[in-house]
Design a protein around this nucleic acid. Sequence first.
DNA 1: ACGAGCGCCTGTCGGC
DNA 2: TGCCGACAGGCGCTCG
Length: 274
Amino acid sequence: MPELPEVETIRLALKNGGRGAESILGHRVQESCLLWERTLAEPNPQEFHACILGQEITDVDRRGKFLLLRLSEDTLIIHLRMSGDLNVVNNSEPVAVHDRLWLGLDGDLRLAFNDTRKFGRVWLVADVVTVTGNLGPEPLGNGFTPQEFHERLHAHRRQLKPLLLDQKFIAGLGNIYTDEALHLAQLHPLMISNTITSSQAETLWSSIRQVLQEGIERQGASIDWVYRGGDFQNYFRVYQRTGDPCLNCGKPIQRITVGQRGTHYCQNCQPEPS
DNA sequence: ACGAGCGCCTGTCGGC
DNA sequence: TGCCGACAGGCGCTCG
């Protein structure tokens, strides 16, 4: 479910309070409970329990779609994958149906990792880079320039859509924001990356940043049965708008499958590559 | 180097 | 009503 803007929204809520809960900063882990074994990628459950007890949560960062909970000694890394979410509740509340891992914190709080589809993963590591080391540039970071982006596009000969979804190429984009960025840049999802001009690359660069910023400002998108509180879904240009009029030209939005992912675009505004 | 197919999981929705 | 397939915001793996 969550892409960069949704993960960022969750990060800010954990760090500063929000989404109906208080900040987890400064709280100490007093208890841990793993309810679905495969949720914990590293280390093993015994070591995880022994290591995390007593550590204080000092900060909450993000790298791509990974949440980084900085603890006194280690970092708790969380990837929400398709259906994951993090909830801060009073410890007296019952454990929720799809909670897979929860941490009891001092101050009567519980941080619960809820994940219906069980695709999410959690790591407790000393060195974050062992998990996030292969990620591409952070699209909203200062180091991400149009020139470097153009060079990176030309270093591959791949369709734009699967390339933008590749976290090693750029970190944080998922199916929604990729379709939105390509439509804003007026580039066809099947266009081959090394045929892009420098001005097209710059347009795509700014489109990616624009849709991600919009998503963050709207506190992410809420779709299906999972509700996040954001309302970016009301501002989609193409995603899940198959057959609806393009907001630019009025022609119906098309849906094709690219790399097993539903892909939405406008035939008129995003012409087929020759 | 690249794309296709599949596995991992649970839930919802539309068609019959 | 029930059943059944398609589909879902992700990603790692194998294979050709």
